[in-house]
């Protein structure tokens, strides 16, 4: 299970970083999403991967560490809000700058080429 889990996180991070390095906003947003999935999985594993343990403290002698689950929950919520913001900003950037490049090549150079 550890191997599968670790490779999942690793592949997600690799894809995320590859996409982050793209020049256009949509792949970058996808990359951010992948990276945050990887981060959430990783945070979850910080409490050690165990099976057959009680979720809640007090119902048995053996229980899973509840704190990473709380951390993941917080991270998911914050990640959602931030992703929503960056999507809106990317749309705004597409409208304002006339293209979807992350470093916003100005429209002038394009229009000159067309002329």
């Amino acid at each position: 299970m550890e191997l599968l889990y670790a490779s999942c996180v690793g592949i997600l991070v690799t894809c995320g970083i590859y996409l982050l390095l793209r020049a256009r906003t949509f792949p970058v947003v996808l990359g951010l999403t992948m990276l945050s999935y990887a981060v959430n999985l990783f945070l979850f594993s910080a409490g050690r991967l165990t099976i057959n343990k009680a979720v809640v403290l007090g119902t048995g002698a053996d229980y899973a560490d509840p704190l990473p689950q709380a951390l993941v929950l917080t991270a998911i919520v914050i990640g959602f809000a931030m992703t929503a913001f960056v999507v809106i900003l990317a749309i705004r950037g597409r409208a304002d700058l006339g293209n979807d490049h992350v470093d916003g090549h100005l429209v002038k150079s394009n229009s000159k080429e067309q002329k």
Binding site: L43, A46, L71, M82, V86, L89, D103
Partner: peptide, 24 residues
């Protein structure tokens, strides 16, 4: 818009790294 886009994306990556560090 251009400055904000870069700033936001950089800081989102920063947040992910922060979480990985906290996880470790």
């Amino acid at each position: 818009t251009r400055a904000a886009l870069q700033y936001v994306i950089l800081n989102l990556i920063g947040s992910s790294v922060f979480l990985i560090a906290l996880g470790i």
